[in-house]
Design a protein around this nucleic acid. Structure first.
Lengths: 339, 339
DNA sequence: ACTGGCACTCGGCCCGAAGGAGTGCCAGGC
DNA sequence: GCCTGGCACTCCTTCGGGCCGAGTGCCAGT
């Protein structure tokens, strides 16, 4: 049905359309790519490709434009990996190497991705549930109030205030801190609820109320932020390519403000370091029907921590973008593993 | 020069233009506002206002549009404070009351402001330099490595890793922690460098190297982030009003990504709770020449912590926006004072 | 000092013509 | 049987001209 030449034609159409943003015609195609056949032949192939739904005409007497399905085929079978230039490699290292803490890693990564791909970048914080406890700190604010600070091995810091049912002194705070850390330091957050299940009961009656209050707040903090955080950057890249969004960029910008949507999009990415592409109507969210998202999961070692990616028009340089997103994801994973 | 009626005319022009986004003519003016004079008279007034630079014509035979100077006069002398509706008041309380920690306060504030004003919201984190130390925590990661966590009274948490020149044990870490906190807990960050100036020297020789390393990192962390953090939200409001930006929204979006620009804009706001308006070309930044920023400083008590505000087209509802920004700033200040 | 009247200006919109890119199809050649 | 050159056709885009109407500035009159 689709012989090699037809696939070549499709590839050429995608490449030309991506670079010119204009429907590409048969004549222009044979001029710019050495297909070895005449425009008339190409026209026949195009008709076949259109029949199969890989390309479409904006109107009669216009050239062809790839459809979502066409881009999909291109990404799956027709594109070759484009290695990063050494300049890009260097940019990644220089950009990320001086990061001070997790916030800094994330914000630098967003800027880096946006600059590298010239699209909108989206970076998710390491998912709490996939991290481990590094340390739990209790700070006495007053006789009935503590501040609880949870630090994870990925560098996330969560803090909460705890109102205690009874009075507490420094000594007891210290004891409680020691006991809690003994139980949960180094443990996956996922297991913490279990680890602490019986701790309050084992506590001497005098301090049991306070201990329970602390544990309750701690456990609550682990689920509250289950809706994880994402950071977005490079939104001005949208307006640079405004022509590519038929219904204007407004719905896209709106989608970018819906954390939930972004998290869901990123969340569906696959295995660590593998790059996922979601094209046009493969997108679950209405406002993103004319966009593509290229994402990858980053992690330290074999542990997937969270995902990052970029969002752009369907007409994008898939090989280049995929290479950049993949490289950044790998590098971020490495940095987080080190710290 | 500008008698009362001319000012009335200017006020009417601003109000009409803000609500219709069309140059307003003399006839429409007398119809919609009971000025008590004929269109011809209004035309004379308009000519005078144009002479003085308060209004302008997009082209001959078009109505008049306020200039930057016209908006300025309107804001300074012609607008009356618009009290918030009770629904808005309630929205502010409901939105901000459940905030868990500082990150949460900031992100909720951004969303609240964007929703309330329907413009782009910008919120700055409390400036480190204006906060005080609540607690400094040292966590031993390995024999030569500590994590340093600084918690301020405004809820900011800064963390850094410290590589030590020598070995260290838990006991020494505890001692150092205690000594540091004794010196700086409760102190304004501003004074910390002074407070710690002689601490390293007073340290016993055996631990002096490590103590110096910790102090160095701590002091560095206080200046590194001197470029303070801001959070932006509601960018989709820009495209909703795309018509209002002659050169498209692109430069505005770009400016929004320049943290430095935003910080500078916010930083020039005035005294706590007072609302500042910067209109069009009063803006120091090129890309924001066709926007207005309404900002206010928030603080706890009399202490100014940082600023927040919204950015929108010059054609905005100044009284309403100013009221909203002011109210939110006051409320945020109150919340931070409580915690 | 205000008003009604009037000539004038100029952008927006509609329309039709010209131009051009691209297609589909067909008949002929390798 | 597949490819090619040729040709008629479609339809978007661009451009120019003419009409319309909103709005102005000015002037003479009250």
């Amino acid at each position: 049905m689709l012989d090699d030449r037809k696939l070549d034609v499709l590839r050429a159409i995608v490449q030309d359309f991506v670079s010119t943003n204009e429907p590409v015609g048969s004549k222009a195609l044979v001029e710019r790519h050495h297909l070895g056949v005449s425009p008339a032949t190409v026209r026949n192939d195009m008709a076949a490709l259109e029949e199969e739904g890989y390309i479409a005409q904006p109107h009669t007497s216009a050239g062809r434009v790839p459809t979502d399905k066409g881009y999909r085929l291109f990404v799956d079978r027709l594109s070759t990996v484009k290695p990063l230039s050494s300049a890009e490699r260097r940019a990644i290292e220089q950009f990320l190497d001086g990061a001070l803490d997790l916030d800094d890693v994330v914000s630098r990564t967003v800027r880096l991705l946006a600059q590298l791909t010239r699209h909108v970048a989206v970076v998710q914080y390491p998912i709490l549930d996939r991290s481990s406890v590094r340390h739990l700190e209790l700070i006495k604010l007053s006789d009935t109030r503590l501040m609880l600070v949870l630090i994870t091995d990925t560098g996330r810091v969560e803090q909460r205030q705890v109102d205690l049912p009874g009075l507490i002194d420094e000594r007891t705070v210290g004891d409680l801190r020691a006991r809690l850390n003994q139980r949960i330091a180094g443990r996956p957050i996922h297991d913490v609820p279990n680890d602490l299940a019986d701790l309050a009961e084992a506590e001497p009656p005098a301090t049991r109320g306070n201990a329970s209050a602390v544990i309750a707040v701690l456990l609550a903090s682990l689920v509250e932020r289950r809706e994880e955080r994402v950071v977005v950057g490079g939104a001005s890249n949208l307006t640079r390519l405004a022509l590519d969004f038929p219904d204007s960029v407004h719905p896209v910008l709106e989608a970018l403000e819906e954390q939930v949507v972004l998290i869901r999009l990123l969340g569906e990415a696959s295995r660590p370091t593998e790059v996922t592409v979601r094209i046009g109507d493969e997108n679950p969210y209405e406002g993103l029907r004319s966009t593509s998202m290229v994402s990858a999961t980053y992690g330290s070692g074999s542990r997937a921590l969270a995902s990052l990616g970029v969002l752009g028009p369907m007409r994008m340089d898939y090989p280049g973008t995929m290479a950049a997103v993949g490289a950044v994801a790998r590098y971020v994973g490495r940095i987080l593993a080190e710290s």
